[in-house]
Design a protein around this nucleic acid. Structure first.
Lengths: 323, 323
DNA sequence: TCACAAAATGAAAAAATGTTCAAGTAGGAA
DNA sequence: TTCCTACTTGAACATTTTTTCATTTTGTGA
């Protein structure tokens, strides 16, 4: 019949008329392709092909109505670009308001939506995470448990103890708290090993590996790193790490630009789950934002260390438009 | 979770956020419902339900882009309202231009698009049909045949003979013509019967019944009717037919308001296919327009005598908006 | 005319989607 | 509390859609 060029169709042509008619019968009248074929004397396969063509050349337009699309678009773009299960973009912090409050709120709300009976939630460390309980407000009691994924029940990190966070979360949810009664970093690999052999601690770590959800932050290779704070690394060590390609850390474990583990001499002294463990968790949530963390987050996401990201608008945009 | 009211969703809610995200993954990223469910931790069925909801509440809008939509809309509306296989709406005739030219052109073009090798096309009678050859212009030779569906190879009707029309069409298409060598109306039922028993005529009628396509017009119960023109009915007869509920005729066979056959004393004297035969033809095309024919066309379509309509804009609108 | 590559076709297979149903669950009234 | 009705859920089933593939058709250049 007519010589059908790839993507342009004469609006006056009979081919076009037919495309429009079939599209209407399918999308407006909701006939099946079979019924349309029968009515018009075409094979079902042909009707199918015409419909594909109709979508391709834009005779049929499918639009998604998303008012206030900005945050949604960012979230959606992030999930696509980094193959995430979910992404939450919170508004940039107001002047004078700390970013970690906004992030903590986003993480807390995300958690309320995803927490179900029987789940175990692992909590990492850091200033942002320590603010999560402030905003965590489940509408009803949930039969779940919260645990630590790194030692340190009795320690404090940046003024906030893991212990407190874990117990607060458990209380707010109406669930149980499970602790790791041990330091996060041991003085030697041997000491660490003997702790790990202790059944109660081994159990605690095993529970941590089997969390349904883990919330954790990531940080750059600088003085905020866990191992620096605890005095196991000095400035020179950090410098060396950076020079050799370490980009950031999560739970005291460093990783490079691609999110691959970057081993350090202290890896065997840390009492906590590894990056490999983290990758296996169904919902591993990284809660982080701020310009300095952009390359770190990017690396972590590229290495699939996390499946959910909670961040702020500005960071989201940097994650999307750079590189 | 949230109490989901039937058709209104809070744009800020997490439910809405989820609907938009899933809609985007499905319609923009073209993931399958299964993949989406996997990624988001939902069952496939649930994703399916959310997508149905997205369409229902209008988050997803499917639009069909039909520039110059007027004729298309009319055609589409006609196919739906009267359950037609196709409808062609030609522009209203210009001042001084006869409607039947426009209709004949529409019918001829429709035929070009649908005529295929091996098909048989039956041609009825009437002024409009007699103009079809003028506009019939197939781009290539088609191995098909044209036949008459009512006697009258040697007669003329309104100045145009069936014979001429059939042979012209066959010639233009490069196919064969098959005639019914007999009058369209006999002087008695007995005479008609003996004609019908004649093998060559019986064959011709059988061929007519097995057409793939039949083009025919319809007319109101007035002096233009075949049986009046041939002198078998007088004005009083017409008057009586009208009073008893006859609305129009096709091929000399009358029908009522619902398109049901309205028997007359002359039915057995007509040498041609019946309305019941007409209904069995895959593509029976009625070519008719004009205010006076609106009730006739409507009746014929309601009785499913035809599956394709060729008419003009004004008539189309009347067919759609009245009754 | 022939031969060849590209495009179109539809039957069958595979995949995706939609529906039903039985079981479970929340919310509300007594 | 108990009972009741309403809704929600996902597995199993049914239907529809899409893809694949072998074949035919069509256009093109020799």
């Amino acid at each position: 019949m007519s010589l059908s060029s790839e993507s342009r169709v004469n609006t006056e042509s009979n081919e076009y008329r037919q495309i429009v008619r079939i599209a209407k019968l399918y999308y407006e009248e909701e006939l099946t392709q079979e019924q349309i074929g029968e009515q018009l004397g075409l094979s079902r396969v042909k009707v199918n092909r015409i419909l594909q063509r109709a979508r391709k050349i834009g005779v049929v337009k499918i639009t998604i109505d998303a008012p206030e699309s900005d945050p949604y678009d960012l979230e959606h773009a992030l999930t696509i670009k980094y193959k995430l299960r979910d992404a939450i973009v919170v508004p940039d912090a107001e002047e004078g308001e700390a970013l970690w409050h906004a992030l903590a709120k986003g993480a807390a709300e995300w958690l309320v939506d995803h927490l179900e009976d029987g789940m175990r939630v692992g909590l990492g460390m850091g200033r942002t995470l320590s603010h999560v309980p402030l905003y965590f407000n489940p509408p009803e009691k949930i039969n779940c448990s919260f645990c630590e994924v790194i030692g340190g029940a009795a320690e404090t990190s940046g003024g906030f103890s893991n212990y407190n966070v874990t117990s607060q979360m458990a209380e707010l949810a109406g669930g149980r708290a499970e602790y790791v009664y041990a330091p996060s970093i041991l003085s030697s690999a041997e000491a660490c090993l003997s702790f790990k052999r202790e059944p109660s601690i081994a159990d605690a770590l095993e529970r941590a590996r089997q969390c349904d959800i883990i919330l954790q932050s990531v940080g750059p290779v600088n003085k905020s790193a866990l191992l620096y704070v605890h005095g196991y690394f000095d400035e020179k060590d950090l410098e060396e790490l950076r020079e050799n390609g370490a980009v950031g850390d999560a739970l005291g474990r460093f990783f490079d630009q691609s999110g691959n583990p970057f081993p350090t001499r202290l890896d065997d002294q840390i009492l906590g789950i590894t990056l490999a463990d983290l990758k296996k968790v169904p919902w591993s949530v990284v809660v982080a934002g701020g310009s300095s963390k952009v390359p770190v987050i990017k690396a972590a996401l590229q290495g699939n260390l996390f499946s959910v990201l909670v961040t702020d608008t500005k960071t989201a945009e940097q994650l999307l438009h750079e590189g």
